[in-house]
Design a protein around this nucleic acid. Sequence first.
RNA 1: GGAGAGGUGGGUGAGUGGUUGAAACCGGCGGUCUCGAAAACCGUUAUACGGUUAACUCCGUAUCGAGGGUUCGAAUCCCUCCCUCUCCGCCA
Length: 423
Amino acid sequence: MLEVKNIELNKETIAEALKKRNVNASDDLDKILSLNEARKKAQIAMEEKQSDSNSIAKQIGDLFKQGKREEAEALKERPALLKEEISELKEAMQKAEEEMRELLYTIPNAPHELVPPGVNEEDNEVVLEEGTIPALGEWAKPHWELAKDYNLIDFELGVKISGAGFPVYVGKGAQLQRALINFFLSEAREAGYTELQVPHLVNEASGYGTGQLPDKEGQMYHVTSDDLYLIPTAEVPITNLYRDVIVKLEDFPIKRCGYTPCFRREAGSYGKDVRGLNRLHQFDKVEIVEIADPRSSYENLDRMVEHVKGLLNKLELPYRVLRLCGGDLGFTSCLTYDLEVYSTAQSRWLECSSVSNFETFQSNRLKLRFKDDNGKTQLAHTLNGSALALPRIVAALLENHQNENGINIPVALRPFTGFDKIQ
RNA sequence: GGAGAGGUGGGUGAGUGGUUGAAACCGGCGGUCUCGAAAACCGUUAUACGGUUAACUCCGUAUCGAGGGUUCGAAUCCCUCCCUCUCCGCCA
């Protein structure tokens, strides 16, 4: 959620930045400001009357103490009248506030200056390409065939017990999952992230806190009987740990990581996008989350990208780094780098990580703040990134490291798998 | 799931209708003392919104789990909801 104060000060700049998302928010921003003015006006009037009412009540109290009963009784009339006016003004104030908030929810974050303009993923800017794409022979197969040949993943069994998009990992396939999770967590720990194990179901307030609600209402699994949501990413529980928290300046940067399964309804997906491991309803991911000093949060972002690059290098996978264009940028993000692995057998890039700085968009909602050098409370910046999401990494590992008689496990991963090769 | 108890400031915890934004203690911060430190002593100690200001400067309002109600006046009384704890049951 954008900060009203910021809109007051920089309306033009924000409107301009939002144009990069192909959003014309100018009218909405004006509306927000005028609702805010209406709110203030009602508030001033209301508080004045409350003040009157309070002081009369105090007088009555004093008179009763002095035993001046009649005088006290005589004073009672005024506040009774004021009360009605107060409640009307309060209603007006709350209404304006609510309308303003609802409008604020619909406006995405203002993109950072580095964000290139553009409408979709084709306009994303390639920042870096690294690793060599292996030259595979005619025999090369896509991961869904490899998964079947080597009995690593059973998609049909998953359909039987749950539905499409819920694979069952078998034998070395399951071991590979576990190894990757351990590898990622261990790398994160070495990079200074504290590991957390968090709930996989969260309440509504948490959904709002990180911005999944109300924007992506239909994308989360909702357990209506208990009004809980299955997490679409560990970002939600981990970041919400800091809801309503005032952190200390010297605690920056707060670095947390955690492994969780992620649940996504993926309503509206179809075709080659959902083939094999490309898009699932449940998948595993290690997430890194940082809470940072606003003055240096973009350095944190860069370091996070470096961390993820390190993982891909160690897994010996060809990848590229994209700076997302305005049209492809997530609702809550200011600046996002996507990391994509190359899927050799599918001849396409697969997104496996997304690293973002949200600046104060989440913390405003979360009321996640810190005391600055002057003792003033300010909103902190939040950042997060996948490090990494498993399915497409598995796809890329299988496809890129295959040869005619098996699949090689990258050296860095071997201590975690306990085997060198799948055959 | 059944029965009971309870939710107060950073923490412990007092407060059952009238200067209570809230005692006391602990912690934190500042100071005195000291070569320095500890101890002791003194002072200070929330958040949000609005107005005001050179300035968290001063003022107002709200906030004692959340929302509503009674009252001139509510942490205190009433209603609804949420949460926590204890015991019993079930159970990895």
